[in-house]
Write a protein that binds this DNA or RNA. Structure first.
Lengths: 156, 156
DNA sequence: CTATTTGACTTTCTTTGACTTTAATTTTAC
DNA sequence: GTAAAATTAAAGTCAAAGAAAGTCAAATAG
């Protein structure tokens, strides 16, 4: 204990607890100043503790008035998606990805057009990277989209 | 949050909401004075937030009694999507991609959750390719997804 | 060795101000 | 009284400065 990263992690998680809509906005420099650490420490915490795999979506804006938004999915409540996530892992081929998307549709978690959009996003035609990282990129895209779906159930 | 540009953007959009004919007239100096900012700030907001690819037309007249008119374009969905396609081209950065997605939502072409799914798919976190092809991949993903929307209008 | 911390450098977005251009109004010359 | 000139009242442009956040690699801690 008592490394700053853990403390900042906890702090952000408390903010998220208090937030009504499961998302908070922070200012990197402000937070860094508050914890008397370097600004890039905040980035470190975000990438190591608030990654997609852990159920968080992080967005940011630079420039004057810039900020970082952290949104959370309540992964505990959804053992199901947790299972799918670990199945996807770091890398997934197109066939398996499509299967998972179809599954989500069958379960009534996504609508028809959402299914089609997701399939389009992870198609080989989309991920035309000339290197052998297609499946890694596909895994990331799929997980990101799934997070949105799970976070956003209310809108369904 | 809380940068003046965003506030002015919001203000103008509210004016547009209230306007009967989807267009409003403002006076640059008056507005600048109201928000206690430099007049050229207004130009900045107009070029970054009310550009033609965001669906706005801005006209102005200089000299005494001059003013700026901002009008919201009302374009047929099909032609609209086609135009956006050519704008995306081979490569697109994240900001522009998000703008296009927001536009589709604003125009009622996609739903809220579809918007979020699409934004997740083209986020930097998703497209974690270690090489300099991010923007190419992003363009492909976005176009693929838009194609689904375009073909699948009936479901909306 | 792995995880953390820091700092120098980069990128992106915003804000400001000095200068330019254009249009309307007022003044002047005839 | 009218046409040209001067003045004034807008809006436009552009580049520099400022305000964030991002990256990456070296140093440090455990």
């Amino acid at each position: 204990m008592s490394n700053i990263s853990d403390i900042i992690e906890l702090f952000i998680k408390e903010l998220l607890e208090d937030a009504s809509n499961q998302s908070v906005e922070i200012q990197r420099n402000e937070l860094a100043n508050y914890f008397k650490c370097s600004p890039s420490q905040i980035n470190y915490v975000l990438t190591t503790r608030f990654s997609i795999d852990r159920g968080y979506i992080v967005e940011s804006r630079r420039g004057g008035g810039g900020c970082i938004r952290i949104a959370q999915m309540d992964i505990e409540k959804d053992r199901y998606i947790e299972g799918l996530f670990s199945e996807i892992g770091e890398s997934i081929n197109k066939l398996k990805a499509v299967q998972i998307i179809e599954l989500l549709f069958q379960r009534g978690i996504i609508k028809d057009r959402e299914k089609e959009i997701m399939k389009a996003a992870i198609s080989d035609r989309s991920i035309q990277s000339p290197f052998n990282i297609k499946n890694e990129v596909r895994a990331n895209i799929l997980k990101s989209m799934m997070l949105v779906v799970y976070r956003n159930k209310k809108d369904f």
